[in-house]
Design a binder for these strands. Structure first.
Length: 480
RNA sequence: GGCGACGUAGCCAAGUGGUAAGGCAGGGCUCUGCAAAAGCCCCAUCCGGCAGUUCGAAUCUGCCCGUCGCCUCCA
């Protein structure tokens, strides 16, 4: 097995991945702030880290994958004020919806899913330490982080303090020393959710500190760093920059994370997508209309770190690819039982792995799979399934069924309307009625009465039934 | 203004020094009464432009043009 090379934002180079502790990989990925509905851009990001998990697992590492939930933030509080709902109900509902979508997409459950509000004491401990060392100071609206105290500030995102100072400004109501400083703790205004924090004052954590506190608590209690910190590219600044600023002064051995891996953002039909612009379709709605496996395949064709433009065309292409995979699967499948994924060392999975070694080149890996199925023998099913698993596509029972489109309910009535004069459909089920027509057409064909044959086929077509003739006989399916 | 990404066939896209993956669309063939499906085959003398480095460049360097993102909440 070759080396896995990953692009590391921290060093801005492609590096060979080696775990800090041989055999064990600790990953922290910034999860959702569920104060609005999740969209396809979120899906792309978490789908990528799901792929990375699969591949690291395939390579034999033991993983600890932590994906946090920032369940307290200004937006959910504002939304609660607008709607009159309880802020926590809002957050819980959005998060439940997100989880359901992830399940539909086949994203594996995180090992740990820490909620910010469950780690208040750890957050407060960290703020105390930062204050003791002079990295934090208290003013009337909250506790802020003193950016000027941390000399490495800006290193991850490749920015320098002077330029940042030039563009930054202090919002009304903020009382910080410097425009770049950010809140570690916000004192509660009347009616806002709050947690006690002696001696400073009741309030809630600022955005950023929860990730520093929870990654420390769950992945790196000794302060010696963990392996991979991930998230969308939009988190590099300021979120990840701030996490580093909070964590590293308290660590025995920085850096906070050895690798920083960022997923490219997603455009939707050529336009930027974001919560604040509101120009996105909620993920649940998209999943209601589309096959989750087709959505996964769509993402495989573009490099994970690139900006990707999601379009109806790209999704249509993925559907065609998915059908191709299903046909090959049926061709290779010995019977009606779905064979579980095996751990195959050689063959296709190894070739796919070699391609994933190159900074998770899923596009090339998919191409390899498609080349494989062109002349794959029936016995290659385990290889095929393993390779598909690596790409996050898991065959299920429905792959064995050629057409799962449900029959229109009124098929028999419509057939009676078309052909009731010549064929009696009394008591027939939809399937039986269709078979009756096909039998009638078979007789016509046997008699070389092509006019009658075509008339029957056209009648079926008007009822939404498409038929095709093959050496094995005539089969039908529900027309698209 | 600062930082960064990208520009490869009609469309999407891989490839980052050794002579252009793959998918969609399109075309042809096989099969077929017809149709559909399926299978097979074809489809970029060339990688935004111009210079340069090199035996050799889509791949490296410089300049130019274009698209987009981040710099404020964001996966």
């Amino acid at each position: 097995m070759g080396d896995l090379k990953l692009y590391n934002t921290r060093t801005r180079t492609l590096e060979t991945f080696r775990p800090l502790t041989p055999g064990d990989v600790r990953i922290y990925v910034c999860g959702l702030t569920p104060s609005a509905q999740a969209h396809l851009g979120h899906a792309r990001s978490f789908l990528f880290f799901d792929l990375l998990r699969r591949y690291l697992t395939y390579r034999g590492y033991r993983l600890t994958y932590v994906q946090n939930v920032t369940d307290i933030d200004d937006r959910s509080i504002n939304r609660a004020r607008e709607t009159g709902e309880d802020w926590y109900t809002i957050v819980s509902d959005y998060y439940a919806e997100f989880k359901a979508s992830m399940r539909k997409l086949g994203v594996m459950e995180p090992d740990e899913e820490p909620y910010a509000t469950k780690f208040i004491s750890q957050i407060q401990a960290m703020i105390r330490e930062l204050a003791d060392l002079g990295y934090a100071y208290v003013v009337e609206d909250g506790i802020y982080y003193r950016v000027s105290k941390f000399s490495n500030y800006g290193k991850l995102s490749n920015r320098n303090i002077e330029e940042l100072e030039a563009g930054a400004r202090i919002e009304v109501g903020e009382h910080k020393e410097d425009p770049l400083d950010f809140a570690l703790w916000k004192f509660a205004k009347p009616g806002e959710p709050k947690w006690p924090f002696d001696p400073y004052g009741d309030g809630r954590p600022g955005w950023h500190i929860e990730c520093s506190a929870m990654s420390h608590a769950l992945l790196d209690p000794k302060g010696e760093g963990f392996d991979i910190h991930g998230g969308g590219a939009d988190l590099i600044f300021p979120h990840h920059e701030n996490e580093i600023a909070q964590s590293e002064p308290l660590m025995a051995h920085p850096p906070m994370s050895n690798f920083w891996v960022h997923g490219g953002l997603l455009n939707f039909e050529g336009r930027k997508m974001s919560k604040s612009l509101g120009n996105f379709e909620p993920l649940v709605d998209l999943l209601a209309r589309h096959d989750p496996q087709a959505i996964r395949l769509t993402f495989l064709t573009t490099g994970y770190s690139k900006v990707m433009n999601f379009t109806d065309d790209s999704l249509a292409g993925a559907y065609a690819t998915l059908d191709k995979l299903k046909r090959a699967y049926r061709r290779m499948h010995p019977g009606g039982v779905v064979v579980p994924v095996h751990n195959i060392a050689g063959g296709l999975p190894a070739r796919v792995a070699d391609l994933l070694d190159e900074d998770m080149n899923t596009a090339a890996a998919l191409a390899e799979v498609l080349a494989f199925i062109k002349d794959a023998p029936a016995g290659a099913l385990a290889e095929f399934e393993t390779a598909l698993w690596l790409l996050g596509i898991e065959p299920n029972e429905s792959w064995l069924v050629e057409d799962v489109t449900p029959l229109p309910e009124d098929v028999v009535d419509r057939l009676r309307g078309e052909l009731g004069g010549e064929i009696s459909f009394n008591g027939a089920t939809a399937e039986e009625a269709i078979d009756l027509v096909i039998q009638r057409r078979a007789s016509a064909r046997a008699a070389k009465d092509w006019a009658a044959s075509d008339r029957l086929r056209d009648a079926l077509a008007r009822c939404g039934i498409a038929i095709k003739d093959s050496k094995e006989g005539t089969t039908w399916s529900v027309a698209e």
